[in-house]
């Protein structure tokens, strides 16, 4: 890419309100949106607030909405965008704005505290250790890739459009719950909460969360739908209920 100028429409404001302001930045080969934001911050708007840390797509700090889609600023290359039009950079819509591109994501951490913690079975060995096979842990390891960028929470219309923060924990915490629930050592039962207060039934499988995940976690197919199926097992499937009468103790 030859060095050129591009316009960035960046949302400026705070919890009281705000508007987009146009800035022009010099862009060159290899730049990402975060580079442009830093350049604007250094040369034109020293008070522009943005959260960032690793610039490598691993810390999950620089989440924003670029041209209307939730993305990490550090992983969005400028040569993938149409620079003939202004590039819009807005804060995540699902969370209250603090200032400019920084949002208050503390709701997520409060939700996390409500989820029942890991509760392993009794140790397999006298030294307090367990036996686990890699094959049993493969499924869970996909979920451990999550960097908690909250882009999935931001794009989920149950939170974004319907603001059901009290009834629904969001894709990130279905992934978290699935990682615990499917763990071969875990013995805790989280299905009653998942069905009732955490709103697994509110997900209508739009797969938007999967689409925006920078770690390519198959959130819907591998976490949410399997949890929904476990809820069906427990609460909606009469044959399974009958089956449990003869095999009351489940595996795991």
């Amino acid at each position: 890419m030859v060095q050129q100028q591009a316009t960035f429409s960046i949302w400026r404001g705070d919890s009281a309100g705000g508007k987009t302001v146009d800035y022009t930045a010099e862009v060159s080969e290899g730049m990402v949106v975060l580079d442009a934001v830093h350049q604007i911050q250094a040369t034109q708007a020293n008070d522009l607030a943005c959260r960032w840390n690793c610039k490598a797509g691993k810390c999950g700090s620089c989440s924003a909405e670029i041209n209307g889609m939730p993305r990490l600023m550090c992983m969005t290359r400028l040569n993938d965008l149409d620079l003939t039009q202004p590039v819009t950079v807005e804060p995540m819509r699902a969370f209250p704005p603090v200032r400019d591109l920084v949002t208050d994501v503390s709701w997520n951490f409060r939700v996390k505290k409500k989820i029942k913690k890991f509760k392993p079975r009794k140790p397999d060995n006298p030294d307090g250790s367990w036996h686990m096979l890699q094959g049993d842990i493969d499924r869970v390891q996909e979920f451990r890739k999550c960097i908690e960028c909250f882009l999935c929470q931001d794009v989920c219309h149950v939170l974004r459009e319907h603001q059901m923060y009290e009834e629904f924990i969001g894709p990130r915490y279905f992934v978290y719950t699935a990682a615990l629930e499917m763990h071969p050592l875990d013995t805790e039962d989280r299905l009653p909460e998942l069905k009732q207060s955490q709103g697994a039934g509110l997900c209508n499988i739009t797969k938007c969360c999967t689409k925006v995940c920078p770690e390519n976690i198959h959130i819907t197919d591998n976490a949410i739908i399997p949890l929904k199926e476990r809820i069906v097992d427990r609460y909606y499937d009469p044959l399974k209920k009958l089956f449990r009468m003869f095999r009351p103790k489940s595996e795991g």
Binding site: E65, G68, R93, M164, G201, C203, T206, C208
Partner: peptide
């Protein structure tokens, strides 16, 4: 929604619950 990150016509929502 009509598509990801696109506005919807209704305020109410019950999902599949």
């Amino acid at each position: 929604p009509p598509s990801c990150a696109v506005g919807e016509p209704r305020k109410s929502y019950w999902g599949e619950s």
